[in-house]
């Protein structure tokens, strides 16, 4: 799975594309694991271009947050479309994972 990444002041910003479901959740996980560096202080998942995420995909985000926690790093998501936001809200993930409207706001929140 293609994962567009860049770094800004110790934060890894990764853009997820199209769909994450049971068929490619493992690929998504491997792509994230490969992208994360031990020096990263935070991971920001930009979900603007994500059209669908299944429970298997949510689980990958959660596992990644756990992994990051071990290196004292944080995870946040931003730029959720309405359908993705709804999936986060229904599953209660909006109460576990910090959600921000845009990368700028997310980076500001991650810095503080």
């Amino acid at each position: 799975m293609e994962l567009e990444t860049r770094r800004e002041e110790g934060t890894l910003i990764a853009k997820a594309q199209s769909r994450v479901d049971g068929a490619n959740a493992r690929e998504f996980q491997e792509a994230l694991e490969a992208a994360i560096d031990t020096s990263d202080r935070a991971l920001l998942l930009d979900l603007e271009q994500l059209s669908y995420i299944s429970s298997a995909g949510l689980r990958v985000i959660l596992l990644t947050a756990k992994t990051l926690g071990k290196q004292d790093a944080k995870l946040a998501v931003c730029s959720l479309s309405d359908p993705i936001r709804e999936i986060f809200e229904v599953s209660g993930f909006d109460k576990i994972i910090p959600i921000h409207p845009s990368p700028t706001e997310a980076l500001a929140a991650l810095k503080s």
Partner: peptide, 11 residues
């Protein structure tokens, strides 16, 4: 209406 519950097993 939703009841603000989180999926089970997480927290």
């Amino acid at each position: 209406p939703l009841t603000d519950g989180i999926a089970l097993g997480l927290v």
